[in-house]
Amino acid sequence: MRILIVIPAYNEQENIERVVDDLIQNYPQYDYLVVNDGSKDRTAAICREKGYHFLDLPVNLGLAGAFQAGLRYADRMDYDMAIQFDGDGQHNPQYIEAMAAKMEEESLDVVIGSRFWEKKKPFSLRMLGSRMIQLAIKITTGVTIKDPTSGMRLFNRSMIHEFAHNLNYGPEPDTIAYLLRGGARVQEVQVEMNERIAGESYLNLKRSIEYMTRMCMSIVLIQWFRKRRA
């Protein structure tokens, strides 16, 4: 079973070493790939100095494009599974084993590292968006995804191929909703996530609201028009 950890990184000079060194030292059974998304800081330089495995995108493509680059690589190198992994240390690699095991046992297409599979979702403003997206997915697909906004998602071989070569396959909840409607098998595994240690989070209040609105619109209105060609 070959698993590739795809780490999109945009201006992560303060985090990338900690994240990748942990993977190299403690999880040598997995391959990893940093995708430097045209960072303006020293992210690429650090990767080069330390001899990390990485893709150096010459221009900034955004998360979706960077992640897709990783999956394109995974597809070409014929990996069995690929996991979307944050470059800022939010995700814990210890859970990958359980996620991969679940995927294999139940022959799933996608396994989400879920903060709320067993634990209750807190009633905070931050989780309001998550609830709305959960509701939108429930209404349109009939499936309950307890942590749709989790950025830790494991994909199987056929998903890797599909994500690598198609338009509108961003690693976001609307793609999950679309896949669910197309009959994909998606499950969740309970994980713990860390607070970001260094650097600035991409999501402030304004961006969160924009993101939530875009996701809900996409799931409720736009995904119906898509035709799946795997």
């Binding site: 893709l55 010459p58 493509l61 494009g65 680059a69």
Partner: peptide, 20 residues
């Protein structure tokens, strides 16, 4: 514009993969 966007994305990814 959408198509151009997709093409640039693919090209960027290909360049990085080939370099690697």
């Amino acid at each position: 514009l959408s198509q151009l966007d997709a093409k640039i994305r693919t090209l960027t990814q290909e360049i990085a993969i080939r370099e690697n």
